[in-house]
């Protein structure tokens, strides 16, 4: 059965931003109906292991199909019965060529030292870019952080705090800054921090008047933001930056 999944890691089409796309959800619902969850592509299985929102969507679609006697049958299924292999979107040879190009670029780039002196924000972007080129640790910028995700949207310590925007899971375009508006703690000095999904702090801003702003990061992905006072966490939020914000 596993030979169906030769495109492990190939996520194109099954994901839309940080979540499963319509077809990703549909494929998982079919798998649930056919008891073939283990044959789903690894990326989909991993995502379902972390994302309650997608689990809810999948089980709801499954429920609708079950209620209407429309569950798929294995023999008819375009993915599970044919076992078609889908090729990697970027061939290994292409990736190798990019690696060599990146190495040459680093050696030749006279200003490479400047990168090391760049502010934290640019360094983080650069390291992400570099790890993307090299395949690195196959980091998925949209994977929810196991440590931060369970806390997203929670108010800690001070119930007076009311976050108006952004809401947990809001999606922003790459040209849109993170704009924070909150009530209840105006007049107090708070620290707003932006973290990537590995917990690396990418930017900071002090606030005290109920609003703050942080510039968008260098690449799309799932990010978390923290509001704290005197080193104590008050609120943890999350936001996605993607290249194009779709209306639906």
């Amino acid at each position: 059965m596993k030979e169906h999944n030769v495109y492990e890691g190939q996520r194109d089409g099954l994901f839309d931003g940080p979540h499963l796309s319509g077809e990703g959800q549909a494929l998982a619902a079919d798998a649930l109906a056919l008891d073939r969850m283990e044959d789903l592509p690894d990326g989909v299985q991993e995502h379902l292991g972390e994302c309650q929102e997608c689990r809810e969507a999948v089980i709801e679609v499954y429920q609708i199909l079950r209620d209407t006697d429309s569950l798929p049958e294995e023999g008819d299924h375009p993915f599970f019965s044919r076992g078609e292999a889908v090729e990697e979107p970027l061939k290994p040879a292409g990736r190798r060529w990019l690696k060599y190009a990146a190495i040459a670029l680093l050696i030749l780039l006279p200003g490479s030292m400047l990168i090391l002196r760049a502010p934290l924000w640019e360094q983080a972007s650069f390291s992400r870019w570099l790890s993307g080129i090299f395949g690195g640790d196959r980091h998925d910028p949209f994977a929810p952080s196991p440590e931060l995700e369970p806390l997203a949207g929670m108010v800690f310590r001070d119930p007076a705090l009311q976050v108006l925007v952004p809401l947990p899971g809001d999606t922003l375009g790459m040209d849109q800054p993170l704009i924070l508006n909150y009530l209840g703690l105006e007049g107090q000095t708070l620290l707003l921090e932006l973290l990537d999904n590995r917990g690396v702090v990418l930017g900071k801003s002090m606030t005290g008047d109920g609003k703050a702003q942080l510039q968008p990061p260098g690449s799309q992905g799932l990010y978390y933001w923290k509001l704290s006072r005197d080193g104590h966490l008050l609120y943890l939020g999350k936001v996605c930056w993607i290249n194009h914000v779709h209306p639906t």
């Binding site: 319509g22 549909a26 079919d30 299924h77 375009p78 993915f79």
Partner: peptide, 11 residues
């Protein structure tokens, strides 16, 4: 054509 079209349309 990875999922059934019917399931896809349901989502």
């Amino acid at each position: 054509e990875r999922s059934m079209l019917r399931t896809y349309c349901t989502t």
